[in-house]
Amino acid sequence: MQISALQAFLIGVVYYLGEVGTPWLTFLVSYCGLYRPLIGGTIVGIILGDPVQGCIIGASINLPYIAFMNVGGAAPSNPGLAGTLGTALAMAAGVGPSVAISIAMPLGLLGTLIWIAHMSIDVLFVHVCDKAAAEGDIEKLAFWNLWPPQIVMAIMCIVPVFIGAYYGADVVTDVIAKLPENIMNGLQVVGGVLPAIGIAMNLRQITRQGSLLYFILGFILVMYLELPMIAVAIFGVIFAYTYTSLYMKDGRV
């Protein structure tokens, strides 16, 4: 599949609109919407004329990032870039979901560079905001808090994705077509195992005693009882509520 210049540009815009900190769709719809490959991939699919395929690829690329967290500005990877450019390249090359994950993950790592640049360059604008604050000029402060950082970020987001989607599609298609079968099999296994990272990272955040046991409980509920996610979630809410109420009854903390 060919990606036209206009399509490549639009994909860049989708990535920009989803990147952490863009204000145009609210923080929530950016960071929890377009930034997540499930949503970003679907919209890329619409741009490339096949929303269903975009949705399938995007949902798959989202798997390793299902438990993704950006805490205090420290982001281990960039699902936004993986979901937009990754879906575009995977659709252009016509690969299946597992291989799409392997294409997207390295992009996600590259994407952290864009994030780090954003967090660093913005330091300049904070100092202009300081000046505005010293002058008591709230309008000027609000301006420097919004426009300059966003213009810089738009350029940093749209340009690389445009280049990647417009020129990269042929390269990726070529490379994938030439890969021997066992290499493809390797990539597929990688795609299957990478969600483990995101889950382990999240589990690490939970320091409460016994968290590994609760983890295994959830694992077994799905593996053996084959409960759907919503059922596990409801079970979890009731279980956590009951446990906590009993625990707190004596006023313990």
Partner: peptide, 11 residues
């Protein structure tokens, strides 16, 4: 607690 259970299910 809820988080750990859900993570297990996701895994």
């Amino acid at each position: 607690i809820l988080g750990a259970i859900v993570l297990g299910a996701l895994g």
